[in-house]
Amino acid sequence: MTEVSVQGEKRNRNAAAEFTRPLLLSPSEDLAGYVMGHLGLTILFLITTTSVAAVFLIFYFVIRESLPFFTTGGGAAILARVREFFTDPGWYPSATEPRYGALALIVGSLYVTAGALVVAVPVGLLAGVFLSDIAPFNLRQICKPVIEILAAIPSVAYGFFAVMVLAPWLQTHLGFSSGTNALNASLILAVMALPTIISVSEDAMTAVGREIREASYGLGATRAETIINVVIPAGHSGILAAVILGMMRAIGETMVVWMASGNASRIPSPWWDLSQSIRTMTATIAGDMGETPKDSEHYYALFTVGLTLLLFTFSLNLLSEYLLGKARAGRGRR
């Protein structure tokens, strides 16, 4: 044991009473602290509002560049333009009589998205259940990186795979006339939406407490019954949010659909024929914008497509926020 006093600093046992540093701020210190504190906070706040500014700028510029599409023809033409845009399936911007009907594009986007979800939702939810309820800890530690790497592969690489590997395979093994079609795009989009669906739904199901599961097991339910009857209903908001987030991922995806969907702007008919080429909103923007002169009607029309897409994902986003908020609130109550 050492002594409290050592060389250098010597301390009287009564030193405990001596407060050498003032406990009161001097007026100048007080003022400086006040100013610096508020100034610092204001700067930090302003930096934080960058995201807000970004959102507003995105909306402002996309709207600004798409408005002329509707307004160039004068007041009466606005409605006709809106009707044309949403009901005409013909997208012929470079025809002598250009037509800007985005119906086929909107349908195309929804078509591949639906195709992707048909595959991704059941697989993703089952995988989510596996990770939250079934897999032992060690297996989960292996599965998670696999899913993360699936999410990490860039979309253009998936598109490359679709064109270079999957399309020839479809052509030779399933006898399609063209390997780049709705089926190809949907399959790849499903793989891309999977990580989102899995991780969000897994979170939702993990958040359902252990007690409620134990209650169910205690009543003699099997694991499957517990999951189906208790866990999934309790986590339904989060699971729904997972599906919506997966849908957003698929509908907003550009490179894969551009490369793999065949880019023929028509509504598939018959509707179940996945081997047809289709064209999506995102692929149209990506494909056309490069050859479009600025401030042409075509340019404005492409921005209008972008605005439609933006509003679509924005409302989906609000919906998922609402659902996740509900899921969180439910968790809080419990």
Partner: peptide
């Protein structure tokens, strides 16, 4: 009060207080 100074005074020098 610490050392006769009310620490919940608005003008307390928190740094000096916590150091001491």
């Amino acid at each position: 009060a610490v050392n006769g100074h009310n620490v919940y005074d608005k003008r307390t020098n928190l740094v000096n207080l916590r150091q001491q």
